[in-house]
Amino acid sequence: MSDTTHLLIPYAASASEGCQQALQDLALPHLDRLLARLSPLPALSDNGEDTSFSTPHERALARDLGLPAQDGRIPWAAWYRHQQGLAADGQAWAFFTPCQWQVTTDHVTLRDPETLGLDEAASRALLAIVSPWFAEDGITLHYDQPTRWLAGGALFAQLATASLERVLLRDVRAWMPDARAEPAARTLHRLHSEMQMLLYTHAFNDERTAHGLPVVNSFWVHGAGLLPEALPPAASKAVTPTHPTTLRDAALRDDWRAWRAAWTALDAGPVADLLRQAEAGTAVQLTLCGERNALAFHSAPRTLTQRIQGFFKPSRFMDLRNQL
């Protein structure tokens, strides 16, 4: 589908009570008209659970790019390096996000790394502090962004890791790699403990506290994996689908009023544009993703039954939302 205009929408719906309330009386006229024109593709999700390590939109995007899509093992960091023109060198890579774990008696919550106020200078200073500890386990850390580094090492070749989106503002214990099943996970658990002990009384955090900034006491590894030795043609020629993040950003903050407003804006913007292209005869694809599943639709002749159903079901999206 390389010649197809593809719009992939993460967090199009959620089973949460806040989202269900936000969906009440939500008018998405362009989306309903578009869905009435398109035909469904085979189901994309192979999990259907909101406990999977990889989100449905990550799995859908990986398949579209021709990347391995096994749960928790989509090599996003290695793909990122490939896209930057950096040699793979046969090494496994992962994203490494410095963060704060907020520990209470019954929860260990990962706070949003963007609230740390890390700038490049502070991030590089922290990187210099922790790098030697990881080097002892064959892990090299490289600066990329203030709240995201790159980590290279054999540890990440087969390690299943949960997306940062899955664990954000949630209890991390449900999303840690299984130390009983994976030796690499035991190493990662140990490194988590060592980092917490190292940073608990470190001058780096003392200075942050003195300036009213949140402490950094942990990290999250995600997007781990190894690119295939020979990327399939789909990956080398792939054009990333348009995937707006406004719904995702609002959903991760549990801001369902903003999520509702974002849907209205998407319907009037990218969705309306896709509808105009479909009406003009351009091949289009629409992928709607929730926290459990992804549903995809494309330009294709519709049966008489499908056309009749589309006519009598003007609110097609409301029929689909519980499947996401």
Rank of each mutant, 00 (worst) to 15 (best):
E182C: 14
A258S: 13
L67T: 13
L320W: 03
T140W: 03
G72L: 00
H192V: 04
T4V: 15
A283D: 15
L65K: 08
L34H: 10
D119P: 02
A185N: 07
A27I: 11
Q196A: 10
A184N: 11
R148P: 03
D46E: 10
H243A: 11
A160V: 00
V130L: 09
L274C: 10
G225I: 09
A15R: 13
P29E: 04
M195D: 01
W263R: 07
A125K: 14
S193W: 04
D319Q: 10
G310N: 07
L295S: 03
A128D: 14
R190A: 13
L275H: 08
R316C: 03
R37V: 08
A154Y: 01
A87D: 12
G212L: 11
A15D: 14
H57L: 02
A235F: 03
L8E: 04
R307L: 08
R248C: 06
L324F: 11
R33H: 09
R37I: 09
D319S: 09
D254T: 10
S39A: 15
L188Q: 08
F96D: 00
H82L: 09
T264P: 01
R316Q: 13
R248H: 08
M318Y: 04
T51F: 01
E114K: 02
G90V: 06
L35D: 11
A88L: 13
T264F: 02
A230D: 07
T201L: 11
A224V: 00
L110E: 01
A210F: 02
V271H: 10
L7D: 14
H211G: 03
M318W: 04
G66W: 09
R276G: 07
T209D: 11
W149T: 02
R63Q: 14
L227Y: 04
W76Q: 13
C99P: 05
E114G: 04
G225F: 13
Y80N: 06
Q100S: 10
R302A: 06
L231Q: 08
A251H: 14
P177L: 00
T240Y: 07
A258L: 10
G281W: 10
R33I: 01
G152I: 01
R173I: 00
Q285P: 02
G225R: 13
G225S: 09
L141R: 10
A69H: 12
E49P: 00
E194T: 13
V172W: 00
P146R: 05
A250P: 07
P228G: 06
H192E: 12
R292W: 03
A283G: 05
F297T: 05
